[in-house]
């Protein structure tokens, strides 16, 4: 088997463009997904069962259906419904955000509930209101515990963004498939894509490990 590095280098500008979009999709979705996840997590933790229910259903739906189904549904049905016509990049970001938000909500809830009850009681007994106790006492501790599972979730998100190729969002995997079509080669495009994804996920892990170290105290 001959491995054609020259073809890869010929195609490198497309891989670069695709990688940029993959990074962009991932960052945007991590941001939106995290914010949405926090809100849904808080929603699900509300004492009023009636109000908490819809948030629980949200999580059940997005964790219980395949991501491929979600992205196709959002691309072909949901986005056109709101924008008139569809847009692959918007659809990809929405699908990735909505899906990861369901997992992040659960990570968030588990993180908060893992903090000893006495912490909230001590904060409240010192006169802090619920919000202040959350902000200064509970969340900083919960956040530290949430970093490892959040890191996993973000890595899953980066990898899942490759499915955006199927709705023709021109990200990394899209160009990998395009290269296969153009040169009728399989090893070069897909191994290149694999290596780039690996670099992305490893960099993210590295950053999160550093953050975790920085936050470690005592």
């Amino acid at each position: 088997m001959d491995f054609r590095f020259d073809l890869i280098s010929e195609y490198s500008s497309f891989f670069l463009k695709g990688t940029m979009l993959t990074i962009g999709l991932s960052i945007a979705s991590i941001l939106f997904g995290t914010i949405l996840g926090l809100l849904i997590g808080l929603g699900k933790m509300m004492k009023n069962n009636f109000l908490a229910q819809p948030f629980a259903w949200y999580i059940v739906f997005f964790r219980g259906t395949p991501f491929l189904v979600q992205i196709l549904l959002i691309h072909f049905a949901v986005v056109p419904l709101f924008l008139g016509k569809t847009n692959a990049i918007v659809a990809a970001i929405l699908a990735l955000s909505f899906c990861s938000a369901a997992y992040i909500a659960e990570i968030f809830r588990a993180g908060i509930q893992s903090i000893d009850r006495g912490q909230m009681e001590a904060a409240r007994s010192l006169g802090m209101n619920h919000l202040q106790a959350m902000r200064y006492v509970i969340l900083p501790q919960a956040f530290k515990r949430m970093i490892p599972p959040l890191g996993n979730e973000f890595i899953v998100l980066i990898k899942d963004s490759s499915l955006a190729a199927l709705i023709a969002a021109p990200e990394l995997m899209y160009w990998g498939r395009a290269m296969q079509g153009q040169y009728f080669r399989v090893w070069e495009p897909y191994l290149t894509a694999a290596v780039i994804y690996l670099l992305l996920t490893l960099s993210l892990s590295f950053l999160l490990t550093k953050l975790e170290r920085r936050l470690a105290t005592g």
């Binding site: 000893d116 006495g118 912490q119 009681e121 001590a122 904060a123 007994s125 010192l126 006492v137 900083p140 501790q141 530290k144 105290t217 005592g218």
Partner: peptide, 14 residues
């Protein structure tokens, strides 16, 4: 106005 001290201390570890 009412301070409380707990059996388990409940200091903020962070």
């Amino acid at each position: 106005e009412v301070g409380m001290v707990f059996q388990q201390f409940n200091l903020f570890p962070h």
